[in-house]
Amino acid sequence: MKKLLLGASAAIAMFAVTGAQAGTLDDVKAKGEVACVVSTGVAGFAYTDADGNWKGFDADFCRATAAAVLGDPNKVKFVTSTGKTRFTILNSGEGDVLWRNTTWTYVRDVDVKLAFQGVNYYDGQGFMVPKKLGVSSAKELDGASVCIQTGTTTELNLADYFRSNGIKYEPVPIETNDEARTNYLAGRCDVYTTDASGLAATRSTFEAPGDHVLLPEIISKEPLGPATRHGDDNWSDVVRWVLNATVTAEELGVTQANVDDMVKNPGKNSEINRLLGTEGELGAMLGLNKDWAHQVIKAVGNYGEIFERNIGPKTPIGLERGLNALWSQGGLIYSPPFR
């Protein structure tokens, strides 16, 4: 997750008076496809399989958006972007929505002129060390060499954290996750720090994952979520409520397997009926078809299913739900009501 604090891109965005277009929703319907800005490859979130299909957590949410707007999850165009180009691609209109594990920060929301539409993954920066180092807390890391991705918010977080705790460290600058993995395994740094999800994913690829531990300290908040252009409220509503629909569906027990049945035989729970369009006119208010949420769940499943399929404990990434459990199960995932 490259949280590049690009002052430059922020400055560029300030001149972007003509970039944003009103009515992305109409544009998308006219084009017949949703252009999603995704990363060039983050394990579990966005990657390509052998046939060149985009897979992963972010890719699934992108398909969900297409299913809601166009009724077909395959009417998507994936625009790949690096940490440096993602905001300009969105602001210039080349992409319609950013589903690219991007941290929601003040500067990005206010100064880069993005509109964040919620959080689909709560992450935080953690530390991984070899077990044989005998370290059980980040506060014991005095004098350690730390592998750190340059130009990211993780770099700034690390500096802040170690300074406030009065710990000295030696940074080993690296560019990509893969490079970090190689350097860490070769012993060129004692500690690897990045988002906890990334650490878990990296550790799962080691030959002996048990020889490495993740330290309990999480030193930053990294809420990852979708973003759209400033000032395009209709389209922003669509993206926000696609995310909310997957969360609400999990809450109400609507799954990919039973959604068709629930539409055919509407039950007595009227929130499910409103969500799936068998009752009320919620779809029309959003400018979409009545069955938009039905299409979303049919295409990719509810939030829990998307999580389990791409990054859950049964996948090689092996992430626990943790903060990303539903609010009713002790997590932070929460959707406003469909009413």
Partner: peptide, 26 residues
């Protein structure tokens, strides 16, 4: 062109490394 998000051979290789089935084969 990798750095502006076009996936040439090197870019595809890097993005393939993100596939959890195969990671670490850089």
């Amino acid at each position: 062109v990798l750095i502006i998000g076009l996936l040439d051979l090197l870019g595809l290789g890097k993005s393939a490394l993100a596939d959890a089935k195969w990671t670490g084969l850089s």
